[in-house]
Amino acid sequence: MVMIVGLEEENKEIESNMRELARGLLKEKKVDVIIGYKKGTLPMMSQPIIIDKEEDVDKLLWNNTCYVNLAKYLVPRVAKFVDPEKGNLKVGVVAKGCVGRALIHLASENRINLDEITIIGIPCNGVINRQRIEMEIGEKEILEVTASGNNIVVKGKNFEKEFPFDEYMNELCKQCKIRSPPLVSKFPDLHVGACEEYASIVDEFDDIAEFEAKSPEEKWAYIQDALSVCTRCYACREACPMCYCNLCFVDQNKPIWFGKTTDMPDIIVYHLIRAMHMAGRCVACGACSLVCPMGIDLNFINRKLEKIVKQRFDFTSGLDPDTLPPMTDFKMEDAEEFMLEED
């Protein structure tokens, strides 16, 4: 059982453990490079960093701002992960639960080879919902963000405000049941640090029940409102570890399927089809929402996808590299209650 301690102490402990693990891995040459996070230049920001030397280990950082899903850098592999002579290098990935899930799921789609990866598991306690805090602070500049107990303390010129972390966590983190990377027993070399075995995940999906109960018109109005500020920059797509297509459907131009403008129908179609492609693949990292420059919260769509997949196909993504993802698989007895039938 984890003792209830303040956020900061907890993060510090994880951070020092992580550094030790990383140091050990590099020293014993178990990995060639490690990808992790380093301190960002802005409050509530962290930057991905790739290190290959022992002395750089102390640059690694862990706190509640590490929201980028590092699995993104493995598909396709960034240049630093490939040696011109040796070929693919062995990569250590600082992985919270969702990064671990992403890696395992990508392995199930044959995108990465788990033999070439070491998961440095980290028991994550959620990441800050940066945009929500920024919006609530409003038009004041945030200069410093610290943790005190279980509160996030935001400081700026002439103001200081505390936010309870439980409330101002990313929406998906609030529902997260897989905080440490899932254990894949077939690959004993895969894990260092905190990894856990997960039996079936139990999830009630209460959080979206309210939305689901709305009428079509209310839903449509809500979606329109939520997506109205979308600028189609595709940051959500680019940050998503599962979006690795060479040519995304919105970019296809032979033929052009969907409009590229910021007219409402075009925006909705983009998000709808992207959601379609995420079914059974989303690993609930929330990166799509956290990178959105306009602060659109796409998490409720991801939750719905999780729910559909869980209830229909009893599947949770990223737990086992050997299970076929549901959308590439089928069963004769799949439910078909939605089919039109004679009365």
Binding site: F211, E212, K214, P216, E217, E218, K219, W220, A221, Y222, I223, I268, L272, A275, M276, A279, I301, K304, L305, I308, V309, R312, F313, P326, M327, T328, D329, F330, K331, M332, D334, A335, E336, F338, M339, L340, E341
Partner: peptide
């Protein structure tokens, strides 16, 4: 059978986005 799974997801997603589910009908 592969298509059926796809249709199931699409049907639910359309409904979730507030598009009347009756617009799209699947049948055998």
């Amino acid at each position: 059978l592969v298509a059926r799974r796809r249709f199931a997801i699409l049907k639910e997603l359309l409904e979730f986005f507030g598009i009347e589910p009756g617009r799209v009908n699947f049948m055998w």
